Simulated assay, not measured.
Amino acid sequence: MATDRTTITANLKTLVRRGLVRIQGDAQDRRIRRVMLSDEGHTLLGEAYPLWQRAQDALGQQLGKIDQDAFRAAVNALSA
């Protein structure tokens, strides 16, 4: 994932405030933090996934016969 640390931190703070994730320190190594979905986060992910899948399917239909893996690789290369 090509995202800098400050962006990840800011996004995680928002998700924590909304109760969608929780951050837990490691008992043996204080430098390690584990990010976990809360119950509400799991519920929201379950609701969002079918919508994401429909969008992926619609994109596949729009792209038609072109090599979709090559297309996605090209898009990823542009954003790197």
Rank of each mutant, 00 (worst) to 15 (best):
N11S: 13
G46N: 13
R5I: 09
V21E: 02
F71I: 11
Q68I: 05
T3L: 10
R33C: 07
A27H: 06
M36L: 12
A73S: 08
A2H: 04
Q56A: 12
H42Y: 13
V16R: 06
G19M: 10
S38R: 05
T43G: 10
G41Y: 04
A80Y: 03
R34E: 01
I66F: 02
Q24E: 14
R34A: 01
A58V: 08
L63H: 08
M36I: 15
R72Y: 09
A55S: 05
H42Q: 15
D69A: 11
A58S: 06
T14H: 06
E40C: 02
V35E: 04
M1S: 06
L51S: 06
D69C: 02
G64M: 05
R31C: 01
A48G: 09
Q24P: 01
D67E: 04
Q61G: 12
S38C: 07
A58D: 14
Q24I: 11
S38H: 03
Q28A: 09
D4M: 05
R31A: 04
D67V: 06
M36E: 13
G19H: 04
N76S: 12
P50M: 10
G60P: 02
T3G: 00
K65N: 14
P50Y: 10
G64V: 05
L63I: 12
R34V: 00
G41K: 05
P50D: 04
M36V: 11
T7K: 13
R18P: 03
T7C: 11
A80V: 10
I23L: 11
R17N: 15
A48Y: 10
I66N: 01
A73T: 12
I32P: 00
Q61S: 12
